[in-house]
Amino acid sequence: MTRLFGWTLLAAAVVAASGAPLLAPHASDDQFRGLLNAAPTFPHLVDDSGHWHRPFIYPWTLVSQLEQRYEQDRSTRVGLVWFTRGRLVGSADDSRAPLMLLGADSYGRDVFSRLLFGARISLALSIVAALGSMLAGVLIGGLAGYIGGGVDDLLMRASDFVLVLPAMYVALALRSVLPLVLASGTVFGLLAAIFAVVGAPFISRGVRAIVRAEKQLDYAVAVASLGAGHARLLARHLLPAARGFIVVEITMLVPAFIVAEATLSYVGLGFPDPVASWGTMLHDASNVRAFADFPWLLSPAAAMFLVVLGLNLVMEQSGVAPVMGAPVAEGAGRLQSE
């Protein structure tokens, strides 16, 4: 039951991301200059006089540009149109009353559409980066834990080094040697690589501890005495013990990477501006007015929560439990807050 709910959430995220061009009423960089930070336009069925209509919205009229106050024009109904211009639904009159299910951001762009388009980059990037971290982390942690001794010390201290290096300067130094204008694909690859490197120590640390502990257990000793090769022992018997841990690590890395993308954009290693991502959307919403007046700007946080909840439910029901997953949240904090 809960597992099904988890899968539903994840499926919804995937559908939203892949179906964005159809589902989103607007392109991610369509701007409505007269509607900066305008509130959501909720579809209505009943008008003020109690009559029923097909779904419609009320337009916003600007009351104060400087204070960004709008009033609903209750005398005008703008209908919704379905399956036109290649989109599922939209307003019949975009110039007068664009459909904005989650309001507009400070550039007058539709938050709902950006949320859908942003899911593509944010989810893809965070998942690719998390997998990258996993591969590197398992390799390093597995070797360190299994071989032990000097190799262990070397690999673990290298992990520590990555953890405390000021990431901002690494990014700045990287930025200065790269061309000024980076294509989205390049940025994607670059960010995924950086995140994978930064995330790997968290995984390697735990994997090492587990492999080390398991190695000394009776069954491992027995398998080894039966003449299993090192690689086989590690891959078939020791690493699977870390599976639960790794899975939980990934669920914690994913939200951290989503947010960290906005952090790296501060030093210029971000996607070109019109490209939507949850991280930059949340970064733009990080001011007091979002809480006070424009709560819809925080919707990417809600979306992130649903994705994390989905991941969590799905994993938990797979019967895996984390052993020592926590360093991740710490690292996440470091990444996010710079």
Binding site: Q31, Y107, S176, L180, V181, V267, G268, D273
Partner: peptide, 24 residues
């Protein structure tokens, strides 16, 4: 910068906005 980019797009000029940190 975003407004400049969007307005110039209307006359056909393509502007790549690159935001850098102050020192850089």
């Amino acid at each position: 910068a975003a407004v400049i980019r969007d307005e110039l797009k209307k006359v056909g000029l393509v502007v790549d906005v690159v935001s850098l940190e102050a020192g850089a």
